[in-house]
Amino acid sequence: MDHGEKRLMDKNQESLFVRLIPFFERYGILLLILIMIAVLHLLQPDVFLSWRNVTNIFKQVSWQSMLALGVFMVIVTAGIDLSVGSIIMLSLMGLAIASKAGMPWYVVMLVAPAIGFLCGMFNGIGITLLRMPHPFIMTLGTLYIFRGIGNLISGGVPITGFAEQIRVIGNGKIKLDVFFGEGAREYIPTSLILMIVIFFIFWVFLNHTRIGKWIYAIGGNPGAARAAGINVDRILIVVYTLCGFLAGIGGLILAGRTNSAYPNAGLQSELDAIAAVIIGGASFFGGRGTVLGVFAGVMIMGILRNGLNLMNVSVFWQQVLIGSIIILAVYIDVLRRQLATRT
């Protein structure tokens, strides 16, 4: 019971506390999701956590999450992509036209990601090679252009009815008869598996490859990246291209889910994507944010919308609430930063 022992104990306690801070920084948002789930479960005990409702949430967020993931990478470079909602619509229309033209399903399936890829590359080239003063302007322009082209090629009318192989991606069910017995109604949506796989791939890309590291470096200080010999323009083109490609995948998922391509597809979904990224803790000024945070941001938006729908809250109130949550989430972040720098 000498002093040395006591000091050692204090030190251990302190280091435990210090170790907990980054834990909360990293996983606090998951805690928030758990709280939301608990509250909604208490309010809607029979419905909210039912298999049907949970899979519904995942099916809804799966295509939105593709947009959010792409926009997240762009925001990490301190950029913005306003055109993803239009890219999803254009790639959906391209897919529908290819399908109506009688192309085989495996070609049709490639059309949407390919169109997204090209649209994103167009954005990236415009921002870098044409020296647009800010990505906001370039992608604001393409927001109109891509949706306009989508309406031109489709004549502005919905196109419905796709091959079963296309529908499986957005609407497929992996039956769980093995666990729940023959003919059980429980299943896992294919789109959930696809979402998890893609998020994992991009997590590896951003955290364990050189290009991923450079994307963060560009967001932190583009001058430092240039001084380190990194070709900043080329990396930016890669980022915007990947963002478009992900929007194209989103279009593919949406095609399967709705079985139709319609002129209003993805309308304003670029704003939902930005909201999810910001709620997920990414900095709008670049260089900060995690893939897990994006996933959490998407889930918070999805659970909130679903919960409010279940409780018959009007769409107008939903808008007010989501807007408030964006502001609140960022304000909590501001407070946290103040606390962190005060010592």
């Binding site: 963060y216 932190g220 380190a228 670049g286």
Partner: peptide, 9 residues
């Protein structure tokens, strides 16, 4: 002179 470091890394 401007150090050329990325503060977020």
């Amino acid at each position: 002179q401007d150090l050329a470091l990325a503060g977020n890394l």
